[in-house]
Amino acid sequence: MVQQVNPALINPLIRVLSTAYWYRNELRDFLVVATGDRSLVFRYPWQDKTMSKRDLATALVHDLTQNQHRYRDVLVRFILTAADMPDPVSLKHLEDGARKYQMAREAIDVFRPMVEPYRKEQEEITEFQRRLQTQKDIDDFRRHTNQMIDDLKVKFLESEKMAAQPRGYALEGILNELFEVFNLESRRPFTAYGEQIDGAFTLAGTDYILEAKWQAKPIAAGDVTEFAGKVTRRLDNTLGLFVSMSGFQKSVPDLVARTGRHSVLLMDGSDLMAVLDRRLALDELITRKKRHAAETGDIQLPAWTILGQL
């Protein structure tokens, strides 16, 4: 059931309309703006000189109040717009203008405090709609992100059928697209000082360079330490992410850990699938790997271990 507008507002509203606008065309134009419905206002005989401005305003207001099941929102908007109308100072220029202006000011001053409950109602509705829109934006963003990840998973599964070299290039592309999906300020493959870098990104203020391999056998320690050398030739705030779809030899984490400062994190095929299956966000995966390495010295924290902790 529609909550009716307080009937005590009706006569003060009509008084405001009939005193604040001297010319009927100005009143008509204000009513169009206030109701937001031109056809609603123009249904009344504005050219009929036998009807006064007050008669026309009264007819409109009464139609709205008697049909609040249909027009309540229009009526509330109308009331609030009338309460916020500008000071009718132009009345002062009319004959007997000072008196006309005073009558209009008195009508407005009486009317304005009466509409406060409806102003608060509209503010609550606006805030509720804002929250709904914010949540909708979040949901839309999540759906869009999930769709992009799903598309990359399809691309990844298709790349499994490729020969070794194109498959490796496809992996580089998929990883770099993932960095973009997760807003990790990514940079595509490049060559610097004769060294090939498979990609780069920034996460939480730390710069990373990427090494991506899709080989038949697990990666040996020599490949990782060679990559670590590329990392250490950059600024101290730079780390490396070595992604190997075939994983790493069991001795790699311990051997690399003995080389000094831990500058490389290891990521394998199961880690990547946890991201592509949308079980774990890429930025969270890397952040947890980094934190674990800093606390324990272990540079290969598996995604399944992280998932077990969540």
Rank of each mutant, 00 (worst) to 15 (best):
L184G: 06
F182W: 13
K155Q: 08
V181K: 07
I79V: 13
V154I: 10
L132A: 01
V181T: 07
F182Y: 15
I149Q: 06
V74N: 08
E123Q: 15
S159F: 03
F182S: 04
F141N: 00
R72E: 12
R187I: 14
Q196S: 11
Q196T: 10
L184M: 15
R70F: 11
F128S: 00
G173K: 14
T126E: 14
K155C: 03
Q135C: 00
Q68R: 05
A204W: 02
E160K: 12
Y101D: 09
A107N: 14
A200N: 09
Y71N: 05
Y118E: 07
A107V: 06
R130N: 02
T126V: 02
H93I: 13
F128G: 00
F201I: 08
G205S: 06
E180T: 15
L91S: 06
Q135W: 04
R130Q: 07
L184H: 05
K136A: 04
D96V: 08
M148N: 01
K153W: 08
K136Y: 03
F141Q: 01
F182L: 07
P166G: 05
I197M: 02
G205E: 02
F141I: 01
I197Y: 03
M103F: 11
S186P: 06
L203I: 10
A163C: 04
A170M: 14
P88E: 10
V76M: 08
A104E: 15
S159G: 05
L152P: 02
G97W: 15
Q68N: 07
D198C: 12
T191Y: 07
R99H: 08
N183E: 14
E185T: 11
K153Q: 10
P189M: 10
E160M: 13
V181A: 02
T191R: 07
R187L: 11
L203V: 08
V74W: 09
